[in-house]
Amino acid sequence: TTVHLNGVTYTFPNPEEARKFVEKLAKTLNLKVEVHNGTYHIE
């Protein structure tokens, strides 16, 4: 599972880890999250 954040790409072997990371980040920084083909894009 891949996460794109400010031009940096993070790869998680575990989709659940990626989801938790994204949710925590989005909540902390009040960001918008979009998912395209299983890839998270955070703005």
Results as ranks from 00 to 15, higher is better:
Glu34Val: 14
His41Asn: 04
Thr39Lys: 07
Pro13Lys: 10
Ala26Trp: 04
Val3Tyr: 01
His4Thr: 06
Ala18Asp: 00
Glu43Gly: 09
Gly7Pro: 01
Thr28Ala: 12
Val35Met: 11
Asn30Asp: 09
Thr9Lys: 13
Glu43Cys: 15
Ala18Arg: 01
Val8Asn: 09
Thr9Ile: 14
Leu31Trp: 04
Thr2Leu: 13
Val35Lys: 04
Ala26Pro: 02
Thr11Ser: 10
Pro15Asn: 11
Thr9Pro: 12
Val33His: 01
His36Ile: 15
Arg19Lys: 11
Tyr40Gln: 04
Thr2Trp: 11
Lys20His: 09
Gly38Ala: 02
Thr9Tyr: 12
Lys20Arg: 10
Thr2Asp: 12
Glu34Asp: 05
Thr11Tyr: 11
Phe12Thr: 00
Ala26Glu: 08
Phe12Ile: 01
Val22Tyr: 02
His4Gln: 07
Gly7Arg: 06
Leu31Cys: 15
Leu29Tyr: 10
Leu29Ala: 09
Ala18Val: 07
Glu16Asn: 09
Tyr10Ala: 04
Leu5His: 07
Lys27Arg: 08
Thr1Gln: 06
His36Ala: 04
Leu29Gln: 08
Thr1Met: 09
Glu16His: 10
Tyr10Pro: 00
Lys32His: 10
Thr1Val: 08
Phe21Lys: 00
Glu16Phe: 09
Asn6Thr: 04
Glu16Gln: 08
Val35Leu: 12
Glu23Trp: 07
Leu31Ala: 11
Pro13Gly: 08
Glu17Lys: 11
Lys20Gly: 07
His41Leu: 10
Thr28Glu: 13
Lys24Arg: 11
Glu17Asn: 10
Pro15Gly: 10
Asn37Pro: 01
His36Glu: 05
Thr2Gln: 13
His4Trp: 12
Glu43Ala: 08
Leu5Asp: 03
Leu25Val: 06
Leu5Gly: 02
Ala18Met: 04
Pro15Val: 07
Leu29Pro: 07
Asn14Phe: 07
Pro13Arg: 09
Val35Cys: 15
Gly7Tyr: 08
Asn14Arg: 05
Ile42Phe: 10
Phe21His: 01
Thr2Asn: 13
Thr39Ala: 14
Pro15Asp: 12
Glu17Leu: 13
Ile42Arg: 01
Asn6Ala: 10
His4Leu: 12
Ala18Pro: 00
His36Gly: 02
Asn6Ser: 08
Thr1Phe: 05
Val22Thr: 02
Thr11Lys: 12
Lys24Ile: 13
Asn6Arg: 08
Thr39Asn: 15
Pro13Ile: 10
Pro15Trp: 08
Glu17Pro: 01
Asn30Tyr: 05
His4Gly: 02
Tyr40Asp: 04
Thr39His: 15
Glu43Asn: 10
His36Gln: 06
Glu16Lys: 07
Glu34Cys: 15
Glu17Thr: 12
Lys20Met: 10
Thr28Val: 13
Asn14Ser: 11
Lys32Gln: 05
Asn30Ser: 04
Asn14Gly: 10
Pro13Gln: 10
Ala26Met: 13
His4Cys: 15
His4Asn: 09
Ile42Cys: 13
Leu29Val: 06
Asn14Val: 05
Val22Phe: 02
Thr2Met: 13
Glu23Ile: 08
